[in-house]
Design a protein around this nucleic acid. Structure first.
Lengths: 357, 357
DNA sequence: ACGCGCTCCGTAAACGTTTACGATACTATG
DNA sequence: CATAGTATCGTAAACGTTTACGGAGCGCGT
């Protein structure tokens, strides 16, 4: 018992140093892989640390080197995007971590409470210096958080575009590209009057989606009709509501584009109730594939992508913004439009007999 | 420009003190609401802090007072429970935060990467002292994490029971109670041969569920038949698989209990394919309600609860374990079995004509 | 013998807070 | 007026690390 208890939990690097009869500085250097330390003593130190279960206190380390080795992912637990998007965020998280873990960076999720203003929440998190860099999600059309982060000079990237973030790093699903491809496909099948669903909130993806839709239509010489933009939540209930509005429209559209495949479940139900058969009486194409909707009949034409890989891309964008890693992740562009792949189904696999307008 | 730039981001409490021509100690006391500081100077300090956007550096504060004011919620992003459980964790998070925020405690989520051992991950997080207390979820039947946390003497609570956690704080959904109630109800409707679904993994809820089922059966004098325990994922696909196995069983059960309502979507589909009509040819009762399954026909008999309130309960349990808050949250018991309420549907609303065995 | 470079290690300062302690000025009380 | 008490504030130590700096020991070439 010369050097104190051997198996008690460690108090700090000081105790570890005393236990080894080595100076505290050398211990620190040994643990951190610094060059000027004898290989044999390094082994001794590592062994002792392992045995005594010593791990550096993060507060002390952060205070000294001004870095935490933690990356934050802010999410808003109450937004409908989270509520209805399967395990989208957890899948992205997986992709992020697969990159970060290579650099011993830990990812933590920062869930903004329902009743707190996201801007104020983020401000608090930034000021506390609990993370080295930040990822924000669910970007609004105008989103003050971009200014906040830029002013705070903390590296960040966004999952989703924003008008406010035009100059800043982001990765986003290719909403407008999908709208474009969907329109092309539907028009090739003879459709001219095509409705689209979009969320009612200020979240930017809805705007991007509808904008792509509008441009694609005009490219085909079809004028944009705001009445065909059906606002609804990205859920089954939302899909049901879209069906409702669709049936109520005069000069009913012959096709509809959904922003989330889950909506198709509700949409199909509503249409069936009115004896309107998807894939025969009306064409349905949907944005991002949801495994939950795989059982639908007729099979839905939709767009698929690897959300995990989107996380990887976003992580690399963020690292390219962090001075400590930027040379390891050189990039031409820090703004990525993430592609999706068309999965043809039966829900739009018919040629329209007579033009509808 | 006497006191330096006024609107530059603050470097620390020292600059704030210089700016105010007040000692650094007084500033700290003023900000932290300590008693011995003049009310007028306190106002000045708060105003200046607000104006200059000063917020205490968390590392410095944590280092000094040994506390971080952060609570961690560990989740495993790859487990099927997360994958298939709607927004269960985010809803629990909401409940947790509604309690924690009253005490200026922030909640962060700690997602254990797919390829990392949860035990090692937790060990790292604990050692780093980044959180004051921890909540673990997805408890396994035997779960070493309980020992780890107990030895580390860090306050914790679990979302879910475990054999290893028998003596430790937890809150869990009433799986066995539901199995019990389901059996009672089905037997009252004349059923004797009743199947049940459970996850195949080592996660403890499956064991608890099946155990409740077994005891309920034996209470009614029906012997437990392991062949009627159908292992499957808690997803639509899992439900489809359950349907498959159900149809293959000789002396087919007349009723089935699901562990998650989402499974019913796949189950219904498989049964329909075989012209077996739920609610007429076979009774279906399900554990926790999923909003996604609300469109099913016939409506599913299921059990509902407020997951948000479960989060509140779990937060209060945890706070009762933290010395700084324990007197504010006195408790008789730190183990809560969270009740669910029966929502009768049409899926089991028929009396069995002739006994099946 | 001298100087130089190299390897390895110890010392101490610094990071930004909080807080125990003591100092000061003022008020009340006798 | 003396003293005690109170309100308010400043000083400095402490939290656990990392790291710049310098020093000791050694080998080697001249």
């Amino acid at each position: 018992m010369a050097h104190g208890g051997k198996l008690r939990p460690m108090k700090g690097i000081r105790q570890l140093a005393e236990h080894l009869d080595i100076s505290i500085g050398t211990v620190s250097r040994a643990l951190n892989g610094k060059p000027d330390v004898n290989e044999e003593t390094r082994k001794r130190v590592l062994a002792a640390a392992e045995q005594l279960g010593y791990v550096a206190n993060q507060s002390g380390r952060s205070l000294r080197q001004g870095t935490t080795n933690v990356i934050g992912l802010m999410i808003q637990s109450s937004r409908e995007t989270v509520e209805n998007s399967d395990n989208f965020f957890l899948t992205v998280t997986g992709g992020l971590q697969s990159v970060f873990s290579r650099h011993k960076l830990d990812l933590i999720m920062l869930p903004c409470p329902h009743d707190e203003d996201p801007y104020e929440y983020l401000k608090r998190m930034v000021a506390r210096r609990i993370v080295d860099a930040l990822i924000i999600s669910e970007t609004q059309r105008v989103d003050k958080r971009f200014d906040l982060l830029a002013k705070a000079k903390i590296p960040f990237a966004a999952l989703g575009r924003s008008l406010s973030g035009a100059q800043h790093p982001w990765a986003d699903l290719d909403f407008d590209g999908v709208a474009n491809a969907a329109i092309d496909r539907l028009i090739a099948h003879g459709h001219r009057r095509i409705a689209i669903s979009a969320p009612a909130s200020e979240i930017n993806l809805g705007f991007v989606f509808v904008e792509g839709y509008r441009r694609a239509l005009e490219r085909h010489g079809i004028s944009y009709d705001p009445a065909l933009v059906l606002r609804a939540k990205s859920s089954e209930q939302g899909g049901y509501q879209v069906g409702d509005e669709l049936l109520r429209l005069e000069n009913r559209p012959t096709a509809v584009i959904l922003i989330y495949e889950l909506m198709a479940i509700g949409l199909y139900r509503r249409l069936m109730e009115a004896d309107v058969v998807p894939g025969r009486d009306i064409a349905v194409v949907s944005f991002r594939e949801a495994p939950r909707a795989k059982f639908l009949q007729p099979a839905l034409t939709c767009f698929r992508t690897s959300v995990h890989d989107l996380g990887v891309e976003l992580a690399e964008i963020l690292l390219s913004c962090m001075p400590a890693y930027s040379e390891e992740y050189p990039r031409r562009s820090r703004q990525t439009v993430w592609p999706l792949e068309l999965i043809p189904g039966e829900s739009d696999a018919f040629q329209l007999a007579s033009p509808s307008n």
